[in-house]
Design a binder for these strands. Structure first.
Length: 671
RNA sequence: GCCUCCGUAGCUCAACUGGAUAGAGCACUGGUCUUCGGAACCAGGGGUUAGGGGUUCGAAUCCCUUCGGGGGUACCA
């Protein structure tokens, strides 16, 4: 049931005599901006009238004259500059309610489309512990997969794991020098994470030490520049000869140097932190001394792995499964699964071929010893092979694209990746066609950064990123406090076992984190606030889950009284529009919300915007709350009222559950 | 320097991609009800959509400009 589409079809017919573009104009149907105007509005008359050279009101009148929507709406009205307002009629609402009741998909269409969508998402580096930054790609990608699949697309998901890069050189180095095979064998995952952290800290220490003098010199230099700029600006300010424009320019130059100095200083600070973190710890300091040159050696270990060195390859093969176990544990907890997990290593032996092919097509340029592709419109080239012969991210991406075309033959590929890689994708997409890859719609589904409460990227005090697993545990613990509050639990009938409580906390905690991510506009940054996420009020998963639980509670009671299971089936038996009546305003609002389900799915699917689905579910839950407050469901003498209200409860429950499921969020029957 | 994104209520965020009087949630003030699950529901105050100019029937949204902030920018991914 896609009401704007139903209406658009009618409008297209009505506008046919006026324009060749009737179909396009007919798409201009939107939900009403204000309930007082009705349920939907058509905005076509304004621009069409303009195009026809007549007044929009007159055009609107002509359209309404020719429009046949008697089976859907009350007679349309014209308002303001030419809005056509539409209000769904009772008969239509009743009929639609019954239709939803009788349909497994609550009347959401399933287009037998030829869309074959490949979604590339999550893609963490396996050797490093996962952190907050990985949430967005994972959760958004998973949601899009569920959503597009439900709408009828043939979806393939692929986790392009970072399993072949420098991080593995780090792990190998760590294992060779600090690893205790017995400890690693006994409990590999934390042991490897520990080895990674230790080795990485030594590398950062070494790099920080070598960078510090350079930075300090730069600071001095910039400071001198600042004095100079300041003097110039002051002089300009005093000089009556100078124009305002010149003065402004001088001021601006000063400000620019100032901000540069500021960023150099913060760089110095974080560099010094890395140094002192090692120097203040005797054990670490002595390790750092013993392992001088670790940064270089790690690259050598990585290069050896890539060259097929038997020792490193064996280590890689032995350690990789443990790294995968680690991330799989988190994926299981998040209920995120992939059709394919083809990591970077999978494409390793194809990279040389990519460079050769680009060479053959005459697209490459050698610059400073590196193999580059200069993409029109960009200053910096796409480097596909380093001076030392190593391949890069871009090379792997191209090889992956070729492979995907051969094997999956998708009509579109979605890359669910951080906005900061926007430029990379622009270049990468621009190279597809010269490489002979056409007819695949390539989309960078970009997203913003997750920030801490201070508005900066989330870090712990020591400067490392916060681990994802700890975050999940934290959310679950907070969810437990909120949902399993002793006073609350005491009212439960039947009582809630400890096991049930912790199961609820897990569902609510995980749901809260996912929903917080999905409910924010995708491309903007958002602040991470666990307390707000698990709150039972506001636009949160908890509120929606709670609303669902309330529907189930009423249905349980209803089935007890009726002595039979209240299900779609029992209501279906007597489903007939004449047995329904939508009288109360709260019943009507809820019904209209339920009918908008498909609309919200289509919008979210079309723009890859899960937040629009979240908004819908929240609005629906709110409409249900009002209904629940004002309309008694049980103990109605009038069978028509009873049937209508029970159906509304049932459908609300179905839609909230289904909607959350498409977001990848679970529900519980009571909470 | 160049490119790019952003600036909306005290705070956190929306605004269906140009539509009517810019909406929610926190917080604040007041109210409802002997709870079909009260951590509920209702009402109220709070806005020059950073500033200025332009485009048009109509702008938070598009263009120009000023101010402020983030990100990217040749061998990391």
């Amino acid at each position: 049931m896609h009401i704007p589409q139903l209406l658009a079809d009618r409008f297209a017919i009505a506008m046919e005599p006026l324009t060749d573009d009737a179909k396009r104009y007919a798409e201009m149907i939107r939900p009403s901006s204000n309930p007082q105007f009705g349920d939907y509005q058509c905005n076509a008359a304004m621009s069409l009238g303009k195009h026809l050279g007549q007044s929009p009101q007159q055009t609107a009148a002509t359209i309404v004259e020719a429009l046949d929507v008697t089976d859907l709406c009350d007679p349309p009205t014209i308002a303001g500059p030419g809005f056509i307002n539409l209000r769904l009629n009772d008969e239509f609402l009743r009929r639609s309610l019954v239709q939803m009741l009788l349909d497994d998909r609550v009347t959401v269409g399933h287009s037998a489309s030829t869309r074959r969508v490949l979604i590339d998402f999550s893609s963490p580096n396996v050797a490093k512990p996962m952190h907050v930054g990985h949430i967005r790609s994972t959760v958004i990608g998973d949601c899009l997969a569920r959503l597009l699949r439900f709408l009828g697309a043939d979806v393939t998901t692929d986790n392009h794991l970072g399993d072949w890069g420098t991080q593995f050189g780090i792990i190998i180095y760590g294992y060779k020098h600090f690893g205790d095979p017995a400890i690693v064998a006994a409990d590999p995952v934390p042991a490897l994470a520990q080895l990674y952290r230790l080795t990485n800290q030594l590398i950062e220490y070494e790099q920080a030490k070598s960078r510090l003098p350079e930075l300090k010199a730069k600071e001095e230099q910039t400071d001198a520049l600042l004095q100079e700029a300041q003097a110039t600006a002051d002089a300009a300010e005093q000089d009556a000869e100078r124009s305002n424009k010149e003065k402004k320019k001088a001021r601006k130059a000063t400000a620019s140097v100032q901000s540069r100095l500021k960023s150099i200083r913060s760089d110095i600070e974080s560099t010094q932190q890395k140094i002192s973190a090692v120097q203040e710890d005797d054990a670490l300091a002595s390790k750092a001394e013993a392992h001088a040159g670790v940064s270089e050696t790690v690259l050598v270990e990585t290069a050896k792995l890539h060259a097929g060195d038997s020792e490193n390859l064996a280590l890689w093969q032995g350690l990789l499964p443990h790294c995968k176990d680690e991330i799989n544990r988190i994926y299981n907890r998040l209920d995120v699964h992939f059709d394919h997990v083809l990591g970077e290593s999978f494409y390793h032996d194809r990279l040389a071929g990519v460079v050769e092919e680009l060479d053959r097509r005459g697209l490459t340029t050698r610059s400073d010893g590196a193999v580059c592709v200069f993409v029109p419109g960009f200053d910096a080239p796409m480097i596909i092979q380093k001076r030392d012969g190593a391949y890069l991210y871009a090379t792997t991406d191209l090889a992956t694209l070729q492979y995907r075309q051969e094997v999956f033959d998708p009509t579109e590929i979605l890359y669910v990746v951080d906005s900061r890689q926007g430029e990379h994708f622009e270049k990468f997409f621009a190279m597809a066609e010269p490489l002979g890859i056409e007819n695949i719609h390539l989309v960078h589904v970009n997203f913003g950064t997750v920030l801490g409460a201070d508005g900066k990227p989330m870090k712990t005090r020591s400067g490392t990123l916060i681990g994802l697993e700890g975050l999940l545990d934290d959310a679950v613990a907070k969810a437990f406090d909120v949902v399993c509050d002793p006073d609350r639990v005491a009212r439960m009938d039947p009582p809630m076992s400890a096991a049930e409580q912790s199961a609820i906390a897990e569902v609510v905690g995980i749901g809260a984190i996912k929903y917080a991510d999905l409910s924010h506009e995708r491309t903007s940054d958002y602040k991470f606030d666990v307390d707000k996420m698990v709150a039972m009020e506001g636009n949160t998963a908890t509120y929606v889950q709670y609303s669902y639980a309330r529907t189930q509670s009423i249905l349980r009671k209803a089935s007890l009284r009726m002595g039979s299971e209240v299900s779609l089936d029992s209501l279906r038996d007597e489903a007939d529009a004449s047995g329904y009546a939508i009288q109360h305003v709260a019943e009507r609002s809820l019904t209209v919300m339920l009918l908008k389900f498909e609309e919200s799915l289509q919008i979210a699917g079309q723009h890859y915007t899960p937040n629009q689905l979240c908004d819908y579910l929240y609005e629906t839950a709110k409409a249900y709350s009002v209904f629940n407050e004002q309309c008694r469901v049980l103990d109605n003498d009038d069978p028509t009222v009873a049937r209508t209200r029970l159906t509304l409860v049932l459908l609300t429950g179905t839609i909230l559950k289904l909607g959350l499921d498409l977001l990848g969020i679970d529900v519980v029957e009571r909470m």
